[in-house]
């Protein structure tokens, strides 16, 4: 991904900064300029809101045929995750064996390399997820 395009979304990619509708309170990620529920009422009332990074696996797949930027990393696990704030997002789940992933698994965001633009280009970082450690202090 071109550097300006990646840079623009660093708050989202690093810190899961989404938006909260000032009208209905619903939280969205990625950020939205308009709330699909409140529409007009929400304009000008969409506020930045960082997700806590915790969620539950709603569905998952293990990718064996990756696109060029992910060659060498396969197989990797991708999941559709329902965040505790209510929104869904897509991300890789790392540091677990393929047989450990299941629907309902609790996960938390971590910070990883997403991909490098060749050996000369920029390295792009962002969120992935890993199995939540239940003993975790809040």
């Amino acid at each position: 991904m071109a550097v300006p395009r990646y840079w623009r979304e660093i708050p989202q990619r690093y810190n899961l900064v989404g938006t909260k509708c000032g009208s209905c309170g619903k939280i969205y990620f990625p950020p939205k300029v308009v709330c699909p529920t409140c529409r007009r009422k929400s304009l000008g009332h969409m506020e930045d809101c960082a997700l806590a990074g915790r969620g539950t696996v709603e569905s998952y797949t293990i990718i064996y045929a990756p696109p060029p930027h992910f060659e060498g990393e396969e197989p990797y696990t991708m999941a559709l995750i329902k965040m505790d704030e209510g929104c869904y997002l897509m991300g890789q789940v790392v540091d677990l064996e393929p047989q450990e992933i299941h629907i309902g698994l609790r996960v938390e965001a971590c910070f990883r390399r997403i991909y490098e633009d060749g050996t000369r280009g920029a390295i792009q970082y962002g969120y992935k997820f890993k199995k939540m450690e239940e003993a975790e202090t809040p």
Binding site: V94, D95, C110, R113, I123, Y125
Partner: peptide, 13 residues
């Protein structure tokens, strides 16, 4: 390190 970990990711964590 995992395949997607480096000094930056370890430092961040």
């Amino acid at each position: 390190p995992a395949i997607d970990e480096d000094t930056a990711t370890i430092s961040v964590e």
